[in-house]
Amino acid sequence: MKIVGLSGSKIGNKTRTAMDCALKALKENYPDVDASLIDLAEYEVQFSDGRNYLEYEGDTRYVAQSLMEADALIIGTPVFQASIPATLKNVFDLLPVNAFREKVAAMIVTAGSPKHYLVAEQQLKPILAYMKAQIVQTYVFIEEKDFYRKEIKNDDILYRINRLAEDTVLLTKTYGRLRKEREKQYGF
């Protein structure tokens, strides 16, 4: 099973800190899972211009292809101006409409205010659903007050990140098993 974490911003450190915790939880609790992280701050991703994602080169192709090859995704996003960052939306725009079909997608959202908890519900979940993802319904929302010196200090947040990792693995295994059973019916 291949799980790719995507830290969806080029600036800041809170989302990356949260994503590092999620990847650590995956690696410690599920050593058989191939878990990796793509931090958009470390890549030069071109703006989407409508081409097939395989026609891009360099970092853009690497990011798009890594997401397409994953069985599951954990998407981390900060909230900027009551929305997801343009860098994250651009990555979604690079991919085909059905890019997340038969993939599980989980979410971690960081924000400076509790007022932004609905960004995941009203913006990120609809995009993931449109792209045909099987969405882990409970996401982790982390506020500014939960961080101290680039670390998460709230034990409840750390517990929820571990639970998100567990739910992501469980759903990915379950959907994979169900897909195999369905394919057996067709005799392929």
Rank of each mutant, 00 (worst) to 15 (best):
A41H: 05
A133I: 02
K184D: 07
K180R: 13
L171T: 05
V109N: 08
L178D: 06
I152D: 09
D20H: 01
V4A: 02
L6D: 01
L37C: 04
Y62T: 15
L6Y: 01
S36T: 07
F47G: 15
V140S: 04
S113N: 13
A41E: 07
L26N: 00
A106P: 09
E55T: 02
A111Q: 09
T174V: 14
Y53T: 02
I142Y: 01
F147P: 01
S36N: 09
G50I: 06
L158H: 05
I84L: 15
I152K: 01
Q65P: 07
A111P: 11
E102F: 06
T110D: 03
N162F: 10
Y139S: 13
D59R: 13
G5I: 03
D146S: 12
L178N: 06
A129P: 01
D20G: 00
L95G: 12
I3E: 02
E69G: 12
D39T: 00
T77H: 08
A72W: 03
A72Y: 04
D146V: 04
V140W: 02
A22N: 00
I11C: 04
E55L: 10
D155S: 12
K145H: 07
E102S: 05
V140H: 04
D71Q: 14
D93S: 15
V169Q: 03
Y43L: 10
R149V: 00
E57K: 15
I75A: 04
L118S: 13
R177K: 11
K115A: 09
R179D: 10
N52P: 05
G12Q: 06
R177W: 09
L178I: 14
K125I: 14
Y130C: 10
L88V: 15
C21M: 04
E44P: 12
I3K: 01
S66K: 15
R177N: 10
V136L: 07
A111N: 09
S7W: 04
D59G: 12
L95D: 08
A22W: 00
V140L: 05
E57H: 13
A22E: 00
Q122F: 09
M107D: 03
E55Q: 11
R179H: 11
N162G: 09
I157C: 10
F92R: 11
V45E: 14
D20L: 07
K145A: 12
D71T: 12
T60D: 14
G176D: 12
E181Y: 06
E144F: 08
N162I: 06
K2C: 12
V97E: 10
